[in-house]
């Protein structure tokens, strides 16, 4: 077997690349092409969870149907009841020094 000069082999590779329309990259430099070649994963990612019926959305879409969200009504009722027993949410501070924790510190 006769040995072939490396420079000749490189020439051959270059010619091969030009014929078959591939990129001639003898040093194996990273071109980042794999990020462009890879398929987009977003579209299939969004489809993972089965669609869920959003009651609030339906209510907003058809206001003339006059639907009643019973769970939401119950929650609001519970909040009202708690307020009557003095268990409501604390008052929010209007200015910075007004907060409950700030006053306790003094």
């Amino acid at each position: 077997m006769s040995s072939v000069l490396p420079s000749r082999l490189a020439k051959l590779n270059q010619l091969r690349c030009s014929i078959f329309q591939t990129v001639y990259n003898p040093t194996g430099i990273r071109t980042g092409a794999k990020y462009l070649r890879a398929r987009l994963r977003g579209p299939s990612m969004v489809k993972y969870y089965p669609p869920v019926l959003d009651f609030a959305k339906v209510m907003r879409q058809y206001p003339d149907l006059e639907l009643v969200d019973e769970d939401e009504e119950q929650r609001l009722q519970d909040v009202e009841d708690k307020k009557k027993r003095g268990k409501g949410a604390p008052k929010k501070a209007k200015t910075k020094g007004e907060g409950r924790r700030q006053q306790r510190r003094k």
């Binding site: 430099i29 990273r30 071109t31 980042g32 092409a33 990020y35 987009l40």
Partner: peptide, 12 residues
């Protein structure tokens, strides 16, 4: 993101 990745990873 892919476009930025391509530029950032391209050694040329």
């Amino acid at each position: 993101r892919r476009a930025y990745l391509y530029v950032a990873r391209n050694q040329a």
